[in-house]
Amino acid sequence: MSDTPDIAEHLATRAQRDDVLELGMWTFLSTEVLLFGGLILSYFVYRHADPQAFLAAGRETRIVIGTINTALLLTSSFCVAAALQAAEQGERHATRALLGIAILLGLSFLGLKGLEYVEEYREYLVPGIDFARTGENAHGIELFFIFYFIATLLHGIHVACGIGVLAVFAALATATRASSRYVAGLRTAALYWHFVDLVWIFLFALIYLPGRNS
């Protein structure tokens, strides 16, 4: 690692390298917005088609797990933001510790999500595999849970990728010389992690909150 030059041969300055990385990540995130965007449109189309069923389906979700998971992700985002700040100030042990906490929070998120899937499977709420609901709202509930599973699985894959990236940066935090390259890389990775958090904020509002007051 210490042998690699600080800047790639096709770039001129460190500032250019940092700009390129940051702009590249923002461009990537804008594609991610539209990747989830297709699902969001589906959600609104079907919610509009059958509003009562979506309220009923929202009540079937696990609000406790959902809320805890949201808090976990928000906190992990805070840890990553703090880790970046620590790295910028050369506090590499703090960086590693904070990234470690963020990774643990991310893993807990995935664990709880898995638990939630198991409970939904037990209640016959998995379309395509085992879905058994009857009554007037059954079709709408099925559509809701199709959206729920695809959106949360897609989000879960993003969380898993993010954990992998954070793990790399946690491992490198104290292994290398303090370098501007590391900080630039971590800033880019942090953007990704915050974005995963941001997607969840909206998924939480769409999935867990409908129909709670009735």
């Binding site: 461009t27 804008s30 594609t31 539209l34 990747l35 989830f36 965007g37 699902l39 897609l154």
Partner: peptide, 9 residues
């Protein structure tokens, strides 16, 4: 960048 992800999903 903005249209292809919609095709993907």
């Amino acid at each position: 960048v903005l249209a292809t992800p919609v095709l993907a999903i």
